[in-house]
Design a protein around this nucleic acid. Structure first.
Lengths: 120, 120
DNA sequence: CAGATGATTCCATCATTCTGGAAATATGGA
DNA sequence: TCCATATTTCCAGAATGATGGAATCATCTG
């Protein structure tokens, strides 16, 4: 993962409204939700929601598809995983046992992607 | 984890310089590094670095201790884990198999903390 | 095509954040 | 005490981000 991608993703999530939107979509799973429903649940004016959905989409954290009049948004789970992996990458110089007393091993070596960071 | 904590942590990381600092400290492990060394490695003017270290510290992502004239900063691995857990919490309405085709199980159900989100 | 519905773009306003020089504070050594 | 080192605080200018009303675009139905 690129540093600029990570910054974009983190910036997108670093805002209360967007974080709520994202978590709602993560909870929903791959099926996602139409913009209207999201706005209804989180009580957001349409332009505000649209702005935030755009930020999340440009950051690659969510995807969208049109379905009749609605536009359905869904979390991008690959991006989520990649971001988490980027944050925790190389933790403790590859000696995760050094932070294991404090964290779950999975968080320290989370992304098993063509074996690159795998250790467990 | 509180929503406001998560937003603070994400805001702190959503900035290129701070993300670099944090990743450097994650790599260093619990021993951490003195501010001066961080500034040297990342080529940052002291006031700029100090500003960013403060942001990270206020967000709870790093801790500091004085050691003679130096101030040593180290990543807070508990906070890191909690943040990752918050992002991925309840993914796919507790049916992680729905996003498993896309992500590593560990990323979907990462934080085993008093059994609250544990599933594997 | 006309009307209704779902969503986006435009844009001005307001608010927050980043940057680094100069000055200040803390610690240790001669 | 005086000086050097390590780091922080102060501050102001520059840049970036959020908000929501009005207008616009896209799609479906009759």
């Amino acid at each position: 993962m690129e540093k600029s991608f990570a910054v974009a993703a983190l910036s997108a999530l670093a805002q209360e409204t967007r974080l709520e939107v994202f978590r709602l979509l993560v909870e929903q799973g791959p099926d996602g939700l139409p913009a209207g429903v999201i706005g209804e649940r989180l009580k957001l004016p349409a332009p505000t929601l649209s702005f935030h959905l755009n930020q999340l989409r440009h950051a690659g954290l969510i995807g969208s598809r049109r379905e009749s009049r609605s536009i359905i948004y869904a979390a991008n789970f690959n991006a989520m995983t990649a971001l988490v992996g980027y944050l925790t990458e190389n933790c403790c110089r590859g000696q995760p046992e050094r932070c294991l007393p404090m964290v779950n091993p999975a968080a320290c070596v989370p992304v098993k992607r063509n074996g690159k960071h795998a250790r467990a």
